[in-house]
């Protein structure tokens, strides 16, 4: 409750501040999907921070997981005559009409985090991560770390059939192909959750000689890795040493595990999609520079050498 109040206050103050700096800054409408995960909450708070940093007035609309709310919000932004619109689309289809309206009003639209199935001229650019690359970066780290030694990997997959699970699996397999010493011994779904990650890892540990045969655990997200780490500890092994732990997302809790020496690497899915979006918008407004159609965010690798305690502190307040 308190936080909501603070946010409201912040928004209020931000509006006041930026009304003063109206001449310098743009007014941007942001239609967010909702708050289905910690990552999304972090994306919202980082977007607000980035806007404030640049003196941009951000009009924020939470769609509560409904496309109709997003379309309503976008029409609202058009009516208010904003300078640009950011959309994190909840689904891929059904955007032609409302994006066409924005185009007619000459308001550039930037897609965040997810793509849409609509003609490319209806939006200025899209900012998203490359999930296959995330898997590849994780795999490349493992290849580099184990060298020529034989290594049996167990994989905690995301929800069966979900795009991130398919892509992160594909990228990892690409990276380890051609290195016959590294094999994926077992692969099961942990549904992207801690509890299931722990349960699945418990099963793997029993099935692989009490865990003695496992050299590394690759999890499609950090939450499952955190669950898996607990299972490894319960089995009397040392996560991070006896079994290497590599995962994706870079949420605060994996940095806490890293600081404790229990995780080895994570690949960041940055919540800062708005930064590159604002950069592209500012350049476009200033001298009409057309950005690339697909801006891919960096998939940065973090290891214990990257000050995990500091990263934990820095990310903790973002709402993950």
């Amino acid at each position: 409750m308190n936080r909501i109040f603070k946010l409201a206050l912040c928004a209020g103050v931000a509006t006041l501040v930026s009304t003063a700096a109206m001449a310098a800054g743009m007014t941007v409408g942001f239609s967010q999907i909702g708050s289905e995960s910690g990552w999304r909450a972090a994306e919202t708070s980082v977007t607000k921070q980035e806007a404030e940093k640049r003196g941009i007035t951000l009009k924020f609309a939470d769609a509560q997981q409904k496309q109709e709310n997003q379309i309503k919000a976008i029409r609202g932004f058009i009516a208010q005559g904003v300078d640009a619109i950011l959309v994190a689309p909840v689904v891929a289809t059904g955007w032609e009409e409302v994006l066409g309206e924005a185009k007619e009003a000459e308001i550039p639209v930037v897609l965040l985090d997810r793509g849409v199935e609509a003609p490319q001229d209806l939006y200025l650019t899209s900012v998203a991560s490359d999930q296959v690359k995330e898997g590849r970066v994780a795999g490349e780290w493992l290849v580099k770390t184990v060298g020529d030694k034989p290594c049996k990997v167990v994989e905690l997959q995301g929800t069966v059939g979900s795009t991130p699970a398919i892509n992160r699996k594909k990228g990892f397999e690409e990276a380890i192909s051609g290195h016959s010493n590294i094999t994926i011994a077992r692969s099961q779904t942990g549904d992207f959750t801690r509890a299931k990650g722990k349960e699945v890892m418990e099963g793997f540990l029993k099935a692989e000689n009490g865990g003695k045969d496992i050299c590394a655990m690759y999890a499609h997200n950090d939450d499952m890795a955190v669950g898996g780490i607990q299972a490894i500890k319960d089995a009397g092994l040392k996560p991070g040493k006896d079994i290497l732990v590599v995962s994706i997302d870079a949420v605060p809790d994996i940095f806490a595990a890293m600081a404790a020496g229990e995780a080895n690497a994570t690949v960041e899915l940055t919540p800062n999609m708005a930064g590159p979006a604002f950069d592209a918008l500012e350049a476009f407004k200033k001298d009409g520079k057309q950005p690339e159609k697909f801006i891919i965010t960096e998939s940065k690798l973090y290891t214990p050498a990257d000050n995990p305690q500091g990263e934990y502190e820095a990310r903790k307040g973002l709402g993950y």
């Binding site: 995960s37 549904d191 959750t193 801690r194 509890a195 939450d223 955190v226």
Partner: peptide, 16 residues
């Protein structure tokens, strides 16, 4: 029990 097991309360997924 579910929360104590993972040392955290996961409102989105606990008991789903």
């Amino acid at each position: 029990i579910a929360a104590a097991d993972i040392r955290g309360a996961d409102a989105n997924n606990a008991g789903l």
